[in-house]
Nucleic acid binder design. Structure first.
Lengths: 212, 212
DNA sequence: GTATGTGAACCACTTCACAGCA
DNA sequence: TGCTGTGAAGTGGTTCACATAC
């Protein structure tokens, strides 16, 4: 139906969807690509082009109705739905993810957590009882789980990802420091603060300011 | 000195630097762009092109000496240095960041943590006493701090980023869900798991597998 | 007058393909 | 023979600029 949309475009849509309600304060109902672009550090042309892949949501001479555009974007992205998530790896990082309050309000519900450490299995964390990773396949067989969050050590990550894929999980948020291999049709995003720091140091290393 | 390097290239270098030692196991000393590419899901041509921006590190007919290449990459990226980091925002997320053991081994040392909540100020977390954010400027005046990690609520994030920039911080790792505005010469990377999930749902939403 | 939507022009990154060297 | 290093070709995404619509 929709002709091939560049992935970078899809990745910008949630940014737009999130920024728009902020612009709605002060009783404003309409926003121009100019306004949104300034808010986000993006060119107005890019915003218009991105949106044009999906339809014609604006009015010439006026701009975009904020509420309407947010709803369109959420529809396009599938954010009106609720999503079911499992977490694998309940170490320090996994515990922090379970306690993180940012997923559920956006419709991402962590319904089970798994680990392979006998000490960790059975613990209750954020209202969830940690299960043995061996129980993952039977647990997922019953219900539809679209998303897996991987927070295991690097050495185990590819194996866990393979397991998730074999259980029908279609999207993986990978916190492990490896380049994941997945079959076509499975989607991966990588969260890696160390890599982020290590690419910034390239730009900072030369320009060391003298101590004043 | 080095002619303009695309930012995407710089972002891939740490990935190469991290993957190489893994290939060194089994007593191997040399690796080809082919091997590394397969490991990382990148074309061999891209690896060779990326490296060629910085020098000629390989030997025709053989490949790259792993140890040598890792050292070159670490030198290029400034990873041989130690880096000084401050954290602002010691809520759930900030605490998790302080407990995270992945920064220090890579040379990123969090030397101070700040918050504006009287309850949090004074707490000792991971060996660090949380300071009032008002103490940030005097604390940074004395020493060189290159990197700031921002883990405050969205509403306060831009203000904190401005403050960091005014204190001479040149690189910011931003966990807050906003598009940060910084002057030229300051570098920002954004960590946002919710955005990552929200762009994957676009691809998953239609292809919902039937429950078997 | 004002801001969208969009083909065309432009730019940047990726891939190709082969000369050059071990 | 094998693999690097690199100009050249190709691809994909961004920006321009203007016709169009309110």
């Amino acid at each position: 139906m929709l002709p091939d949309i560049p992935e970078v475009v899809v990745e910008r849509l949630p940014v737009y969807a999130r920024a728009l309600p902020q612009l709605a304060s002060h009783g404003r109902e309409v926003v121009s690509s100019q306004d949104l672009g300034e808010q986000l550090g993006v060119t107005p042309a890019q915003i218009r082009k991105d949106l044009s892949y999906f339809g014609r949501f604006g009015k010439q001479g006026r701009g975009y109705n904020i509420r309407r555009l947010v709803e369109e974007l959420r529809q396009i992205l599938g954010l009106e739905r609720e999503w079911t998530v499992v977490l694998i790896g309940v170490g320090h990082l996994g515990k922090a993810i379970l306690h993180y309050g940012g997923f559920a309000p956006q419709g991402f519900h962590v319904i089970a957590a798994f680990d392979n450490d006998p000490e960790t299995i059975g613990q209750e964390i954020a209202g969830l009882c940690v299960q043995d990773v061996g129980e993952l396949p039977p647990t997922l067989a019953g219900r539809t789980v679209e998303i897996g969050i991987v927070a295991v050590p690097a050495a185990q990550a590819q194996g866990i990802i393979d397991l998730l894929v074999s259980c029908g999980v279609q999207a993986i948020l990978n916190y492990a420091p490896i380049a994941a291999h997945v079959p076509a049709g499975v989607h991966v995003r990588h969260i890696d603060p160390v890599l982020a720091l290590q690419s910034m140091t390239f730009y900072v290393k030369d320009s060391d300011q003298p101590v004043r």
